[in-house]
């Protein structure tokens, strides 16, 4: 049996980057403040000293320019890890990501692969206000050609990047900055993980809680509380937001017959709308009740703590909602 070690989400991400740099000399990290500053969130701290400026490239503020350059480098045989400091700034790089990375393979009739990996810090909960609290998972998950991964657990923080680098197609990794200091136990030999499937993190028979990102640990915590009240919910981490793995949650619903989808992103045209639609299309007759959703309130995220907290689902909201669904 493998040994377990305590690791912060930050160190899990960092050890994956280190391993990737060591394993393949085509890999390099490029992004704003990844080098001299040590990474905006200290994820790449020390890597410049260890690997040098050719492998750890500080880039100017120019999201469209450097992300596009990463795409170009991937096209020409390198394996760049592009770090867009936070998802908020990726809006400036979206043209490159969508019009180039996501479409080149198709437009070229299958000739051109773009094996670029783009990492973005994201998430709500640090009182950073409207321009720094975006949840753009649904935006990117909308785009055919992209592989969109949500790093909701420590094992995925340790493993998803390594698997992403094996992908011949462009991968977007959403990393959640509010979890950086959080420590969890993971197997000492944890490494590359599957990046095709969702994952059942807790088995249950009464209801399927379907989520991703920061929703994962929140739902697990809620599930614990609910278990104390005699409610047995299943928790599913979607992980792969595109191409979406529906098998896992459809199978779950054939067992639980009830589903609640939880996410921070705004409700309209979101990941949860997609999940709910697929359940309706493919598991309608399995349902004992309508699918329900807990999502971000449709407002630019306000600065004050109490309003920010009220903008996204919290553990108590999940507990309350599930209780209402199971014990109306």
């Amino acid at each position: 049996m493998s040994k377990y070690i305590n690791l912060s989400y930050r160190d899990a991400l960092k050890s994956a980057i280190r391993e990737a740099l060591k394993n393949d000399e085509r890999v390099f990290l490029m992004g704003e403040d990844v080098g001299h500053y040590g990474g905006a969130f200290a994820v790449s701290k020390g890597l410049l000293q260890e690997f040098g400026p050719e492998r750890i490239m500080d880039v100017p503020l120019s999201e469209s320019g450097f992300t596009g350059s990463g795409i170009g480098a991937a096209l020409a045989g390198m394996k760049p890890i592009v770090e867009v400091m936070t998802v908020n700034f990726s809006l400036l790089a979206m043209d490159q990501i969508i019009n180039n990375a996501a479409t080149l393979l198709h437009m070229s009739g299958g000739q051109l692969n773009v094996p670029v990996v783009i990492r973005m810090g994201c998430g709500i909960g640090r009182q950073l206000a409207a321009q720094h609290s975006h949840s753009w998972e649904p935006f990117y998950a909308h785009v055919p050609g992209l592989i969109v991964l949500s790093v909701g657990t420590h094992e995925d923080a340790r493993g998803m990047l390594l698997s992403a680098l094996e992908s011949p197609d462009p991968v977007i990794l959403f990393e959640y900055t509010s979890m950086l200091n959080l420590e969890k136990e993971i197997p000492e030999d944890a490494g590359a993980v599957d990046i095709r499937q969702a994952k059942v993190l807790k088995q249950g028979k009464d209801l399927s809680l379907i989520t991703y990102g920061t929703g994962v640990y929140k739902c697990l915590e809620a599930a614990d509380i609910l278990a104390g009240e005699g409610m047995d919910v299943e928790v599913i981490d979607l992980r792969v937001l595109r191409p979406m793995d529906e098998e896992t949650f459809l199978t779950s619903i054939t067992k639980t017959h009830r589903a609640l989808v939880v996410e921070d992103a705004w409700r309209s045209v979101s990941i949860s709308s997609e999940v709910a639609a697929r359940i309706m299309e493919k598991a309608f007759y399995e349902l004992d009740a309508p699918v329900e959703r807990l999502c971000g309130v449709e407002v630019p995220i306000p600065y004050p703590k109490h309003l920010e907290d009220a903008s996204v689902p919290q553990v108590y909201d999940i507990v309350e909602k599930v209780t209402k669904m199971l014990r109306p």
Binding site: Q127, L128, A129, A130, Q131, H132, P302, Y303, P304, K305, L307
Partner: peptide
Amino acid sequence: FGKLEGCSMGRGGSMH
């Protein structure tokens, strides 16, 4: 401080 009496009604904070 995030208060209603702020220049942006507390919605923006230091950066806004």
